[in-house]
Computed example of a mutant assay.
Amino acid sequence: MSESGTEWSGAGDTEGIGSKTRFEDIYDRPDPRAYFRRLAPLEYEIPQQAQAAFRRAAAERDGGTVLDLCCSYGINAALLNHDVTLAELYARYTDPVVSGLTSAELAVRDKEFYASRRRPDAAPVIGLDVADNAVRYARAVGLLDDAFAENLELGVQPSPRLRAAMADVGLITLTGGGSYLTRRTFDALLGWAGRPLRVSAFVLRTVSYRPIADCLATHGLRTAHDPSRTYPQRLFTDPAEQRFAVKAVRRLGADPTGREEAGRFHTVLYESVPAD
C-alpha cells in the first residue's frame, strides 16, 4: 500500500483532454429502472467490486453509521446489507415484468424484497446525493436509514440535520463520485464528525485523489492505496471516452495497458484511517 505523499499514481492535472460521459438523465428518476437499463449494456460493476471491501471496512469501523457518498438509489447499501448481487439487481430492474409498474408499486415490491434479504450483520447506512428522487426512493424501500439531498460542492455547510447525522458516522464509502467530488465536500462533512471514522473510496484512475487525501490528513486520517491493484468500473461508451481515459491515466503517471486500453474504466481503492 502506498501512503499519502508517496507514489501517487493519481497525482496530476487532467484538464484539457476531454471528459467521461455523464448520465444525468438517469440519476434522478422516481425509481432505478432507467438507471439499470442504461448501465447494463456498459457492464457497470464497481458496486459489486466494492462489496467485499465495504463489508470489511464496516466490520472494522469503530461503531457508528455508514455514510455512502453519491449514494444514488442506495445500491452500495443494498450490496452491503443484503444477500443480493449486482447481477440480481440488473435482472430485477430490467425484467419486462416490472416495466409496467408505477414507481409506487415497484417501491412496495422492493421494500418486501430487501427486507427478505436483510443480513443479520447489517450496518445502519445513511446516504448523501444531489439527486433528491433517488435518495427518497432508497429511503422509502428501506435501503437507507436516512438520506440527504445536498450539494456540498457549492461551498455550503451541511444542513443541521446532516450535521447531527455526521456526529455518529464511523465509515464513509464512495464508488461513483470520485470524478465530481472535491475536498470541499469532505472538509464540510468531517468538520462535523463526532467519532473516529474511516473512508473507503474507489476512484477512477483518470482523476487525482491527492487533494482529497490531503484534506483528510488535516482531519487526522492517513490514506493508503495499492496502485498495482485496480478494479474495473464499466465499459467505455464510445472511442472518444476511451481516448480521454487513456490520455488521462498516462498524464497522471499510470499505465493504461491491459486496463483502459483494453476497453474499461478502472478504479483504485483508497482507504483512510485515523493516523494514530
Rank of each mutant, 00 (worst) to 15 (best):
Y90M: 01
K111F: 06
A78Y: 03
S272C: 14
D110L: 02
S103M: 10
D31N: 13
E241K: 05
P160W: 09
G10H: 09
L143S: 03
G220R: 02
S72E: 12
A78N: 09
V84C: 08
D129V: 00
L106W: 13
D214G: 09
T257K: 11
L171D: 12
R251K: 10
A40R: 14
V97K: 12
L42E: 10
A193D: 11
H225I: 04
R184M: 11
T218E: 15
P256F: 04
P211H: 07
A59K: 06
V246N: 04
Q51R: 15
G5K: 07
A140M: 05
T237W: 02
G64P: 11
V249G: 10
G191F: 07
Y137A: 00
P232Y: 01
R33N: 12
P32R: 03
S228F: 06
T237A: 15
A58Q: 02
P274Y: 02
M1T: 12
E105F: 11
P124K: 03
R205F: 08
D28P: 06
R251P: 11
R234D: 10
I75N: 05
D28E: 07
R33W: 08
L235Q: 06
A34D: 15
D214M: 01
L128H: 01
A34M: 09
A11L: 14
G16E: 07
A78Q: 06
D25M: 05
L80A: 12
D255F: 09
D62W: 03
G194W: 01
L152G: 11
G16Q: 08
E271I: 00
L67H: 12
V130R: 07
T94G: 13
V169K: 11
L80P: 13
L86D: 07
Y180T: 05
A240H: 05
L269S: 11
P120D: 13
R251D: 11
T185Y: 11
S116I: 00
L101I: 04
G16M: 07
R92N: 02
V207P: 06
V207A: 09
L42Q: 06
V199H: 09
L101V: 01
S19R: 10
F148R: 01
L269K: 06
F54A: 05
P211M: 01
F186G: 09
K111P: 08
L67D: 08
L154Y: 06
D121R: 01
D276V: 02
A91D: 15
V141A: 02
P96E: 13
A167N: 10
R33F: 08
P120W: 00
D28S: 04
E24P: 05
F186D: 11
A188C: 13
V97T: 10
G74W: 03
V130D: 00
F54E: 03
G170M: 06
T185A: 15
T6Q: 14
Y137R: 03
D238R: 02
V84N: 04
T65H: 08
S99G: 10
D132I: 00
H266M: 04
G5L: 00
A104R: 14
V97Y: 13
R234M: 11
L190D: 12
R163W: 01
P124Q: 01
A217W: 07
F244P: 08
